[in-house]
Design a protein around this nucleic acid. Sequence first.
DNA 1: GTCTATAGTAGGATAGAC
DNA 2: GTCTATCCTACTATAGAC
Lengths: 212, 212
Amino acid sequence: MSTDTRQRLLDGALAAVRHHGVAGVSARTIAAAAGVNQALVFYHFGSVDELLAAACDAATSARVEAYATQLQAVRSLRDLLDVGRRLHEEERRLGNVMVLAQLLAGAQSEPRLVEPTARALGLWVEQIEATLTRVLAGSPVAEVADIPGLARAVSAAFVGLELYEGVDADGARWALGALEQLAVLVEVVDDLGQVAQRALKAKVRRKRVVKR
Amino acid sequence: MSTDTRQRLLDGALAAVRHHGVAGVSARTIAAAAGVNQALVFYHFGSVDELLAAACDAATSARVEAYATQLQAVRSLRDLLDVGRRLHEEERRLGNVMVLAQLLAGAQSEPRLVEPTARALGLWVEQIEATLTRVLAGSPVAEVADIPGLARAVSAAFVGLELYEGVDADGARWALGALEQLAVLVEVVDDLGQVAQRALKAKVRRKRVVKR
DNA sequence: GTCTATAGTAGGATAGAC
DNA sequence: GTCTATCCTACTATAGAC
């Protein structure tokens, strides 16, 4: 059946990227992973790049959707850290972040991959941004933090950490732990009394004025 | 001359990775960029991967050395941000972060690239860690922040940002701006009076105990 | 050390049988 | 829709002339 083969190719493309990286992926390795004939890559998708683009789109939408409800339930920074850690571990286990990292690397010199990878990363950014906005509402941190920018930084950082993990697993775990600990600082600030918070906000505003 | 050709190949390798990515780099593209014959890649380095490894090593040592004195002169967070921004812009202009990102992507499925890329990233981590340790000494932030872990997180994040920049330049700039602004929070905390700082430190310690 | 030439392999893509 | 067969290109790597 056609739809079945298409799906096998989409799955095979992800598997091949996980296993061989962008540098080693080809119509042949994808077809092998999918258990179908090599010519079908071109029949169904036209070219290897277009198949990779489609696979990236499909995989990311599916994963983001799977986490949307969990993220929407997040109300505190502590919740966010819990969901974030679960999300990171699961995506890593499924190899999805790796695929995104590899395709981003490929997109740097393959224009046809730019749009799909940007869109995929954009889907994650969207979710993270909405969640951060909700969680940090009213916090003094919201005075300093540019939340849309922060959501983008977090997304990019996870890609970098994934690549780092591949060459130094201990170092990457260390880095991840440090980021989680850093969130404690935000909690501490949020737990300050009203008076101290107001003083802090004032200080922050003064700094920002000076800075510009 | 031999040493001249070796150098041309090392430079050519970096140029080729910048231009074609790991996925598109080959003995031929490197030789073309170096303006030498393709067979010399194998004569001087044995294989493409070994040349890439050597180029990665050489380039990173050179760049880290070039920044070591500037980083050692950093005494405040404001200094660090200034040097950090200059460093980031220059490395980006030279395309060095891109090379590291591409080789990290390649290393995920090419074991021979693991050691050189880990070492290259390690050189940056070393510098950043030493600088952070110096700058944050005595700050309440040092109570929460696991500095070695943070140095690793920062290094990995820059790699991710570089890849992000390739598919969404505006988003990446936004992210970078957000991270710089976040540093203001640290400054604010550092500028608190003695009493407030002591109170904050105590709060942080309590949090950490609870957390474990 | 550097070049030419070439063997051998892998990949993109298409034509045509089924 | 799927498979076989095939063309063409680009690659790694080496042998051998200079």
